[in-house]
Amino acid sequence: MTGALLAAVELHKSFGSTRALAGVSFSIAAGEVVAVMGPSGSGKSTLLHCLSGILAPDEGTVTYDGHELGRLPDAQRSLLRRTDFGFVFQFGQLVPELTCLENVALPLRLAGAKRKIAELAAVEWLERLGVADTARKRPPDTSGGQSQRVAVARALVTGPKVLFADEPTGALDSLSGERVLKAMTDVARASGTAIVLVTHESRVAAYADREVVVRDGRIRVSEWQ
């Protein structure tokens, strides 16, 4: 596919005797928001892990910006995660020992930024997601919706090209979920970040530009705008 920022071709992946992916192809353009839908156990999370280079597929290739992820050494993949990719999961991805501000500043510091500079940027992102008041709190002391927005801020602070979100509102009530989704898609669209949004909820998928449906390890429906 031309113009694809991230593309997967014929991915196969098994865990023991469980087949998670059975020949999935997928692609996403820069700035595009794509929902990956499907019932639980359909392989949608595995697809996300393969796309982001966290998992290596048994067969098939994942190409990001002209580089085949499987051929990159670990250090290069780490670098990608640090600079070009962002992640938001259902819960539990914030470091409970650090304050929300420090959590958001963490990716920048890992990349070698000075503490002051990293934290200034972090404050700005917390503000953009409307959770500036959580800066000094630790994640366990914030509400679920707040910590998810902090997680989104942390995922976007490095200005990634692709944001991988796996059921980002799965643990939230409808209203908090909607707020997180709106904040996430608004901010990502404004900064031209593509989103791979894994969800089993159509209301969440409705925030995307288009969706693909994974069932039994295969893409069933792929709708183009």
């Binding site: 209301r203 409705a206 925030y207 530009d209 709708e223």
Partner: peptide, 11 residues
């Protein structure tokens, strides 16, 4: 597909 399209628009 039709339903999702409608939902996207409503959203």
């Amino acid at each position: 597909t039709t339903h999702l399209r409608a939902m996207r628009e409503l959203t």
